[in-house]
Design a protein around this nucleic acid. Structure first.
Ligand SMILES: [Mn+2]
Ligand SMILES: [Mn+2]
Ligand SMILES: [Zn+2]
Ligand SMILES: [Zn+2]
Lengths: 140, 140
DNA sequence: CTTGCAATGAAAAAGATTCTCATCATCATT
DNA sequence: AATGATGATGAGAATCTTTTTCATTGCAAG
């Protein structure tokens, strides 16, 4: 995942794009909003415009470099596309995100789509719950 | 599903609430946005404020009368809660929504959540694809 | 009927994302 | 390396969805 990926996407290799891709690669939390990316870069002393962050993330999505998720909360989160598809589990208390993939579910989805005459192109499966952290348990 | 349901939810039985509940019951499309509800009521010659529609839909959700979905597109859609849980399939071309429920997937979800130490409280599964309509097929 | 308190609606505010447009940077070509 | 065409940037305005404010209205308990 480097500048060549930007070039291959038909995009010019610019400083903002390098910075954003670098942050997505090195940041500890894999799932970040546009606002997150913007603030983190500013905190790192980098200069960038918020409009550019939104634009570049959308371009990266179109290019297949990142994936956009619509978790609850009204704002999109992005993550670097590291090959394999996976689904998500989100803690409704602390927001922790776990990733998982289940072949049984994946297969059934394709079957169900076909049964309804749909040609599946994508899907979104998000499990909401209380994570293992005691502070996130019901009735803490 | 009548005025008693509103009362049972601890809400006063007001005209706006009766109108919104009535529309959700009788409207042909089950999945509607707040804006949809607002415009449809206005079209029917009913008087109502947009803020009230948002407020009431959220109250109905809290009361378990309606369910909110975050499909792609940046705005929430609501549907009257008619007993059974189900998941959704959305046509990426025409927006048609099909409902389905699959016990295999439902069971696997609970298992997976547990495997990850999560106590599942909810989930969202949306399959995106091209529906059976020829005009929605790839390469029309 | 009275009356308290919840509910309404218009308008303002907030939050997320996109658009506009003048300026600037990249990169293929000289 | 210099040039130039074209794409990219960023500040701010605009847009879109949703929430909040607050003066006014209307349920519903007594
Ligand atoms: Mn992920
Ligand atoms: Mn439904
Ligand atoms: Zn948690
Ligand atoms: Zn369709």
């Amino acid at each position: 995942m480097d500048n060549q990926d930007i070039r291959k996407a038909g995009l010019k290799v610019t400083l903002p794009r390098i910075k954003i891709l670098g942050l997505l690669e090195n940041n500890s939390q894999r799932h970040v909003s546009a606002e997150d990316v913007y603030k983190m870069l500013l905190d790192n002393g980098e200069e960038i415009g918020l409009a550019t962050v939104y634009r570049v993330l959308t371009q990266f999505e179109t290019a297949g470099l990142v994936t956009r998720h619509n978790f609850e909360g009204g704002h999109a989160v992005f993550e670097l596309d590291r090959g394999g598809h996976h689904d998500h589990m989100v803690c409704v208390v602390c927001g922790k995100v776990e990733e998982f993939i289940d072949t049984t579910i994946e297969k059934r989805q394709r079957e169900i789509a076909k049964e309804h005459g749909f040609e599946m192109v994508d899907h979104s499966l998000i499990i909401y719950g209380h994570c293992g952290n005691p502070k996130c348990k019901v009735g803490y």
